[in-house]
Simulated scan of single mutants.
Amino acid sequence: MTKLQGNRSNNMPLIIGTLIAAALIALALFAGRGKSGEQASTASGAAASAKFDLSNKPVVGDASAPVEMIVVEDFKCPACKQFEATVFPKVENEYVSTGKVKVYSVAWPFLAEVAKLDEDDSKYAAQAGECAYEHGGAEAFSAYKTILFRAQEDESKVWATKARLKELAANVSGIDQTAFASCLDNDETLARVEANEEEVEASGVTGTPTVFIGGKKVENPGDYGQLKSAIDAALAN
């Protein structure tokens, strides 16, 4: 611990004056930071609009559903696992199964890179998801995504190895296992994943999960009330 040095009684006026000056400076900085934070938030919100080619994205729901919902996730993301376990089932029950909303999935593999891991298993998992869709269809992809999130381990370690991803895929009967293994081993969907990354960045996404309803970003998708309001507004339009 750093201590003040010198004679306590002689230095007391100086100390008090210094503390008052520091407090005034801190208040000024806080006020300035708050204002710039509001401006940054507004600018970010204005820029966050969906710029995705949905023709090749995994999708669940009626093709004629009037509202498009896009979910951007990383299979290593704990918040995404929570979203899929607690929020998405409500959307599925109230809106997808009733033909009102169709949901597109976009994998954004960024966590392994942020954590500076030896292997980019975020990208492996994203590729595996695309391989499941390619060699099993939308239903198989949806089942595989559920299994991936259930099998999720600590985001700070490499767990989504290609070997593990193939083991998990074996639990989905709709996937052609031979074609899936070849797809993953040969990085056949890598270009698609990297194209998704470019679209995610162009859409102003800064974290996962990010949800767009009718092309507009939902600020707090983990709050089902906010998500429901956004969907109902899109349906009304």
Rank of each mutant, 00 (worst) to 15 (best):
K3P: 00
L4W: 03
G6R: 00
N7F: 09
R8Q: 06
S9Q: 15
S9L: 15
N10T: 14
N11C: 12
L14W: 07
I15N: 03
I16A: 13
A21T: 08
A21H: 01
A21E: 02
A23Q: 02
A31Y: 08
G32R: 12
K35E: 11
K35P: 00
S36F: 08
G37N: 12
Q39E: 13
T42P: 00
A43T: 11
A46E: 13
A48Y: 06
A50R: 01
A50D: 01
A50I: 02
F52E: 04
D53E: 08
L54P: 02
N56L: 03
N56T: 14
P58E: 14
V59T: 14
V59W: 07
V59R: 14
G61C: 11
D62H: 05
A63E: 15
P66A: 11
M69Y: 04
I70Y: 01
I70P: 00
V72N: 09
D74I: 01
E84L: 03
A85S: 11
F88K: 06
Y95C: 06
S97M: 07
V101Q: 02
K102V: 09
V103K: 02
V106P: 10
V106L: 11
F110E: 07
A112T: 09
K116P: 00
L117I: 04
S122E: 06
K123C: 13
Y124I: 09
A125D: 07
A125P: 08
A125Q: 03
Y133C: 04
A138P: 08
A138T: 13
F141Y: 13
S142R: 15
Y144R: 05
K145H: 15
I147K: 13
I147T: 14
L148D: 02
L148I: 03
R150T: 15
A151K: 11
Q152H: 02
E153T: 07
D154V: 01
K157E: 10
K157S: 11
W159Y: 13
T161H: 07
R164Q: 05
L168V: 03
A169E: 12
A170N: 10
S173E: 15
S173C: 05
F180V: 07
S182Y: 03
C183A: 10
D185H: 04
D185N: 13
E188R: 12
T189G: 04
L190G: 09
E194V: 08
A195G: 05
E198I: 12
V200H: 05
E201Y: 07
A202W: 06
V205N: 07
T206E: 07
T208C: 11
P209V: 08
T210Y: 07
F212K: 01
I213P: 03
G214V: 04
N220E: 09
P221S: 01
G222N: 06
D223P: 00
Y224A: 00
G225F: 03
Q226C: 01
S229P: 00
A233G: 00
L235D: 05
L235F: 05
A236E: 08
N237Y: 04
